[in-house]
Design a binder for these strands. Structure first.
Lengths: 337, 337
DNA sequence: TACGCTCCTGAAAACGTTTACAGAGCTTGT
DNA sequence: ACAAGCTCTGTAAACGTTTTCAGGAGCGTA
């Protein structure tokens, strides 16, 4: 591969001049500039990013550490971050921890070693090992989606508690008095907040409820929802509505209900949480507590760039509102089956 | 951040010795090794990857360039690649071209500048600009999912033509004589192959058919399927079955059918192509021509590592079989509506 | 002519590693 | 006692950039 030295030789100038032309820094006479550009063209020169990073002490690379890449919510999140940062000249390295704390910590180390300028992290659980790595390296991070008390960083998320409350309230308002709740994870702060919010609403209105929480972390979220729903539907009295704290789990739950011969929403209402695009196209379309996914990503990216440019000591917490998106999968209670 | 120099100073040894300990290369006496490791621990030392890459002339970084990150098929693909390569000590940089040739080419340049050791590319269209960048830099690539004639590279894909034929045949065998086909893109070779395969089957059996092809590339694949189906259902005679060449488009199509008051599969059969996990949880569960997604990713990654280690001049083409996965969204023709 | 500008250019150091090379201290066999 | 061969360690060069510094050329002014 051609180096700056080859360019200099071909153009008959010094290394410094080539560098100045490439980076458009400092003054170079038009004649030399032309020669350099011609040489760059001729040799298909592409600057060596590692060398540049080494010298400049910045990589213009941002780490994005999420629990699961192959998941509509996190996929959309990563996507929106990518789009925002691309415009600003930053590239991202997406790492999927696969809901595993060890892997998460391992990836944090990888990002530190790559000397990313910053990182956006949606933590897998309550384990903070990964955060240590960034802290030691003084790499600024932004926490997204899942709050983590005690981490000195900017945070962007929705009010999960409120969303949980709001979702449960929707079902209660429809007349449901036996409600099943499916949590997607025992160790995620976001899930806990949603669950507590929902439980509060249920208690506030004296609604009979049953909670399903998975024993182990799993990547099979559809399957989780499926089995959780099967379990809940076997309870006595059977719930007339299910609130899954994740859209993906809700989809699994819907499938289970239909498998059991129940029609949605006539015999069972199902609602989710997240607001993934897919929800609108399901049959029936999924009622959900929607997060502003794109906005979460954009705000996080913006905040990160801010803390990269000027080392700030004040950390912001941005809380975005959830929105109840009512569609066809929930309906009024029609009486006992 | 601590450097190797700091470690050397603290441990009272030379840079070379530290390097030898860290990389477990060459012999170092147990005593010194201990001192070095202690210093590494004390200073939270993390090797500087850019510096290392510069010197070693390898990054152990693999570029993954896909048309769309936020898409179940490509998400799963990226995920399986990531998992395979992580084991082997390689990290990936995921880039999403968003079905845009310019952006794709831009990202190829980015990867070249990062000096990735290799790249796995699922091309967006027929534009080969991106391939030039890798070729000039002599960076080995593996083409995945979408074939591209004339690119000197390893290729891993399914037999899309055969899959298209197979899918159409399934509908024909069910007795359908008016079939609509939805293509997801005009410019993707994979889509064209699927389409031609399907058309061949339809012609072979004298089946009336209608094809919908989008005019412009879009990222809204659900929406594409939705509108395509609405369009097809308006035709006279209306199709009794729809074959969407993408699962995501099939989901949109199912939604459109229900919106039009048709029940699936009684009044309209819908089938897709890809075999995304989600398909099994839809209501009704989606019949599809399934690709072995994980396997595609693994084989591609394996092939890439092979061509990185020993510069090969022979390029392989691996064709994996598709599998017709029959579920609930297709059924026998019940007579004219 | 001498001086002080501005504009342009190149030499050289630096970024944090790895590694070729050489030297120092041992052991071993003669 | 000495050569030869180990094992261990350090010095210094190299990887491809960016950037500081100094100096030369040209020009207007005193």
């Amino acid at each position: 591969m051609a180096t700056i030295k080859d360019i200099a030789q071909l153009a008959g100038v010094s290394l410094a001049t080539v560098s100045r032309v490439i980076n458009q820094t400092g003054n170079v006479s038009p004649a030399l500039r032309e020669q350099v550009l011609a040489a760059v063209e001729a040799l298909n020169y592409q600057p060596n990013a590692p060398a540049r990073s080494l010298r400049r002490r910045e990589t213009r690379l941002i780490g994005v550490l999420i629990p699961q890449l192959n998941h509509p919510f996190f996929g959309t999140l990563a996507y929106s971050i990518e789009r925002f940062l691309f415009e600003k000249g930053f590239r991202i390295m997406v790492c999927s921890a696969e809901e595993d704390a060890d892997r998460e910590s391992e990836y944090a180390q990888v990002l530190v070693r790559q000397r990313v300028d910053g990182a956006i992290v949606a933590p897998t659980g309550l384990d903070l090992a990964w955060a240590e790595h960034f802290a030691h390296a003084r790499i600024p991070i932004v926490l997204i989606d899942r709050d983590l008390p005690g981490v000195p960083a900017n945070r962007v998320m929705v009010d999960n508690w409120q969303g949980g409350y709001q979702g449960a309230l929707h079902l209660i308002a429809l007349g449901h008095r036996h409600i099943g709740v499916i949590s997607a994870s025992r160790h995620s702060q976001a899930m806990q907040d949603r669950l507590q919010g929902a439980l509060q609403a249920l208690r506030d209105h004296n609604v009979v409820h049953q909670v399903y929480e998975p024993d182990v972390e799993t990547l099979q979220q559809y399957d989780l929802g499926f089995h959780a729903a099967l379990h809940l539907l076997k309870q006595q009295p059977a719930p007339s509505a299910i609130f899954a704290l994740t859209d993906v789990a809700a989809i699994g739950a819907m499938h289970a209900a239909v498998r059991e011969g129940l029609s949605i929403p006539d015999q069972l209402s199902v609602m989710g949480f997240d607001g993934i695009e897919l929800g609108a196209y399901l049959i029936p379309a999924l009622t959900t507590v929607a997060q502003p996914i794109e906005q979460l990503g954009n705000v996080a990216a913006e905040l990160l760039l801010k803390s990269i440019s000027r080392a700030q000591t004040e950390y912001e917490l941005v809380v975005l509102p959830t929105q109840l998106t009512q569609r066809a999968s929930t309906g009024a209670w029609r009486g006992a089956r």
